[in-house]
Amino acid sequence: MKRIIVILTASLTGLTILAGYFFQTQLANLTGLLIEWGILLVGLAGVIGVGYLFKMHLVRVAHWQKGSLLSLIVLVAFLVTVGIGFFLPPDSAFFRNWVLNIQIPVETSLLAILAVTMLFASLRIIRTRGWTLMSVSFLISALISLILNLHYLNPAIGTAGAEWLEFVRRLPLAGLRGILIGIALGGLIVGLRVLLGMDRPYEDES
C-alpha cells in the first residue's frame, strides 16, 4: 500500500505537469504551484547536500584522517562565508568581493588547465581512438573550425566562395541535430519510465 502511494505521488505529479503542456491556460496556476514546490524542495536538497559536504569534512577533521588539514580549510571557508553572508546585507560589496575574488581566479585557471590538457590530448588523438571515420572527421572538422574561427577567410557576400564557406560552417549542424534528437528520444523514454513506475529512484527498498 505504502509503495502504491509513493508511486502514485510520482505519477500524478508528473501527469499533472504533462497535462499542463496540453491545457496550458486551464492548468497554469496548478502547474506553477507544483513547480514552486519543486523549486523549494530542490533548494532544501541543496542545503542538505551542503550538509553532507560539511559532515564529510567534519568527520575527517574529527578523526584526524588523511587530508584533515585541507578539510579544515573547507570548514573554515564555509563558516566564514555563511557568517559574512547572513551578517551583511544582501547587496553587500564586501560579500560579493569575497566570493567573486575567490571564484573567478579559480574557475578561469581551471579552464586554462583544460586548454593545456586538450592541446596535449589532441596530439595523441589517433593513439587514443585509432584511425576511424569518426576520429578522422573529428580532426578535419576541428582544424577547419579553428581556421574559420580566426576569421582570415572573408569572401565577399554573394560569391560562390561565401556560399561554400557558409555550407562548411553549417555542416556540423547536421550531426549536432541528430545527436540532440537522439538524446531527446532517450530522455523521453527515461522520463516515461519514471512516470510509469518502471524506474523508482525514490524508493529505499529493492
Binding site: K2, I5, V6, I7, T9, A10, S11, L12, T13, G14, L15, T16, I17, L18, Y21, L34, I35, W37, G38, L41, V42, A45, G187, L188, V190, G191, L192, V194, L195, R200, P201, Y202, E203, D204
Partner: peptide
C-alpha cells in the same frame, strides 16, 4: 520517499516536455 517521489515525478514530466 514521498518528497523524492514528488521531485522525481515533477522532473520526469519536465524531462518529457
Amino acid at each position: 520517499r514521498i518528497p523524492l517521489a514528488f521531485l522525481a515525478g515533477l522532473t520526469a514530466a519536465l524531462v518529457i516536455g
